[in-house]
Amino acid sequence: MGNVERGSATELIKDAELARDELRTALKGAGITLPSLSLDGVSLAGDFPRPLVHLGRCTPELARRIAEALRKGAP
């Protein structure tokens, strides 16, 4: 992998980390914590990573709280 490709891969991963952090902060503001919120390791592998934010698993109660928070914020 060349330097340009490495730079692009690094930028993609940093962008995914920022998106994850933005989501974590927004959820925290709604009183919600997703313990498994992270970057998907498999999507980071290879020469040309396609980073994905992994939301993880949650209880049915938490799923309902997220749904309610989204409904409140929907236009």
Rank of each mutant, 00 (worst) to 15 (best):
A74P: 03
V4L: 13
K72L: 08
S38Y: 10
L70G: 02
I32C: 03
C58Q: 05
T10C: 06
R65V: 01
A45C: 09
P60W: 02
P51T: 05
A45M: 11
F48S: 04
P35E: 08
P75S: 10
C58A: 02
G29F: 01
I66S: 00
N3S: 13
L52M: 07
S36L: 15
A69H: 07
G73F: 01
S43V: 00
P51Q: 05
L37H: 03
V42T: 13
L52H: 05
P51N: 02
V4F: 07
M1K: 05
K28D: 12
A74M: 09
E22G: 13
V42A: 15
E5Q: 09
G56Q: 01
G7K: 14
A69K: 06
G31L: 13
L23T: 10
D47I: 02
A63I: 00
G2K: 06
E11I: 02
P49A: 08
G7N: 13
G2D: 11
R65K: 12
A74Q: 10
F48H: 10
A74D: 08
P49T: 03
V4Y: 03
D15A: 15
S36E: 15
R24Q: 13
E5W: 03
T33V: 14
L27Y: 11
T33N: 13
K28V: 04
H54V: 00
L39T: 08
C58H: 05
L55Y: 04
I32L: 03
R57A: 14
D21N: 10
L37G: 07
D40P: 06
P51W: 01
A63H: 01
T10A: 14
P35S: 07
G41Y: 08
G31N: 07
K14D: 15
R50Y: 02
A9Q: 09
L18A: 15
G29N: 15
E22R: 14
R24C: 09
G56E: 05
P51H: 04
G41S: 14
D15F: 08
G56M: 03
S8Q: 14
L62A: 08
T59M: 00
L44D: 08
V53S: 05
C58T: 11
V42E: 15
L70N: 04
G7Q: 10
D15R: 12
R50E: 12
L39Y: 07
A67E: 11
L23N: 04
N3V: 11
A69F: 07
L18T: 15
G73Y: 00
R64S: 01
D40A: 11
A74C: 09
R24H: 12
V4N: 12
M1W: 12
A16D: 06
V42H: 13
L23H: 06
A74W: 09
E22W: 03
S8E: 12
V42R: 15
L62K: 07
D21S: 10
A16Q: 02
G56R: 04
L52E: 08
K14E: 15
I66T: 03
S36G: 14
A67S: 08
P51S: 13
A63D: 01
P60T: 04
R20N: 08
G46V: 00
L18I: 13
P35H: 07
A74N: 06
G73N: 06
V53H: 01
P49R: 06
R71S: 07
G31T: 12
E68K: 09
A67Q: 07
A26C: 12
G2A: 02
L70Q: 06
R50W: 00
P49G: 02
R57P: 00
P75V: 08
R71Y: 01
I13A: 09
I13R: 13
D21H: 00
P49D: 07
